[in-house]
Simulated assay, not measured.
Amino acid sequence: MGSQMQAGTIQQIRDGVITEGPVYLQVSALHPLGKKHKGVYSDGTDSIEAVFASTVSQLIESGNISNGCVVKLISFTCNLVNDSHKLISTECEVESAPDAGTTEQPSVKAEPKESNIASPTKENMPSNLKVEDRASSSPIANKKVKFEGTGSNTPHAVRRDSESVKTPAHPRIASLAASSRTPQPSPSEQPTPAPAGPPMDSPGLLVGSAKKAVLPIAALNPYNMNWTVKARLVKKGPKRSFSKGGTQSTSVFSIELVDEQGTQIEASVWRDLADRYYDLLEESKVYYVSKGKVKPANKTYSSMRNDYQLHLDSGSEIEECPDQDTSKMQAKLSIVPIDQLSLFIGKK
């Protein structure tokens, strides 16, 4: 089974030591996720949650990739989502079929969460603090405590209130209690970073570095907002302006992009960014696009064969790429049987 699989590969991917293929991993626990699939990758000793891009999902739907087989990952990216790593596969090949009788499916191991807050114990609690109920292992004291040697024999109750901790038992406990009440924004609510592009009166686009770390378009997902893609601008639509309820006019236009893997995606450029860049962007040129929002594509208005589309606003960045080689940036062509052509009318 997978003679080229090596133990420790997954941990090296998590640590960023391995960032590109080929690597060899075993597949298990496959299940559909919309037009994509999820599963688990294993290197024999460790495992990680796997997300298969739509291009790889076609191999799963056709039966070429199944539970237990070993695949050669050629192109992939590893993202940290909600304290858990996910390995997103954008290109892979079947290395070997499942072994006969292989039924065991490894589960994803929980990753340890680092914490520098010590739980209150006899050693690290203040000497005058006595916990009457030691059954709870929670780091937040929600039990009655009493202070000895304070000049009073009356025990003082410490309780956890919905607004604040009235009498914190320990400075570190108070710090943890405060952090646990701080609301954490979901990925869709996180503000887009401030723009680092040219100012409004800039005469042209910034030229980006030739050594930027880029993701393939197929690896984009709504949970990762810190991304950069390198793509050729295939088509630029007309700029439109509209206003609602007498508010200030808003500008928007659409562009179509394709990367070196031949994956296409549509992007909407909004507001200040639309006014700033519309006359500067040129079709057939290569650009770095980053820090936009990845949203599900609205198939009613988009004919692009991609499950996502990009939303670029004032916090996004567009830079001209110094390398203008477009020889590999051509849209992939799919072979379609003649009797199924009607299903692709109006699509690209």
Score class of each variant (00 low, 15 high):
S3L: 12
G8K: 02
E20S: 10
S28H: 03
S28N: 09
H31A: 03
K35M: 06
K36I: 09
H37E: 04
K38Q: 07
K38G: 07
K38N: 08
V40C: 11
E49P: 09
T55F: 09
G63L: 07
S66W: 00
V70K: 02
L73A: 09
L73R: 08
I74F: 10
F76N: 10
F76V: 06
F76R: 06
N79G: 03
H85F: 08
S89C: 13
E91G: 14
E91D: 15
D99A: 10
P106Y: 09
K113D: 04
N116D: 13
N116R: 09
A118D: 08
A118F: 11
S119R: 07
N124L: 01
M125G: 04
M125Q: 04
S127I: 02
L129V: 08
K130G: 11
V131A: 07
V131H: 03
D133W: 06
D133G: 05
P139V: 06
A141M: 01
N142L: 09
K143R: 09
K143I: 07
K144H: 06
F147H: 06
G149L: 06
G151V: 13
S152E: 08
P155F: 00
H156G: 08
H156N: 04
A157T: 03
R159P: 05
T167N: 10
T167A: 09
P168A: 00
P168D: 01
P168H: 01
L176H: 04
A177K: 09
T182P: 03
S188M: 08
S188I: 00
E189N: 10
A194Y: 04
S202A: 15
P203C: 09
G204I: 00
S209A: 06
S209N: 02
K211L: 03
K212M: 04
A213R: 15
V214I: 11
A219H: 05
L220Y: 11
P222V: 00
K236R: 05
P238I: 00
K239P: 05
R240L: 12
R240I: 13
R240Y: 10
R240A: 15
S241V: 07
S243W: 02
G246I: 08
T247D: 12
Q248N: 12
V252F: 07
E256H: 12
V258L: 01
E260K: 01
E260Q: 05
Q261L: 06
G262Q: 02
T263Y: 12
A267Y: 02
R271L: 14
Y278C: 00
Y278Q: 01
K285E: 03
Y287H: 09
Y288D: 05
P296C: 12
A297V: 15
A297I: 14
T300P: 04
R305D: 14
D307C: 14
H311T: 08
L312M: 14
G315A: 11
E317M: 13
P322V: 03
D323N: 07
D325L: 14
T326V: 15
K328D: 05
M329N: 02
Q330V: 15
L333H: 07
I335P: 05
P337A: 05
Q340M: 11
Q340Y: 05
G346M: 05
G346F: 03
G346A: 13
K347G: 10
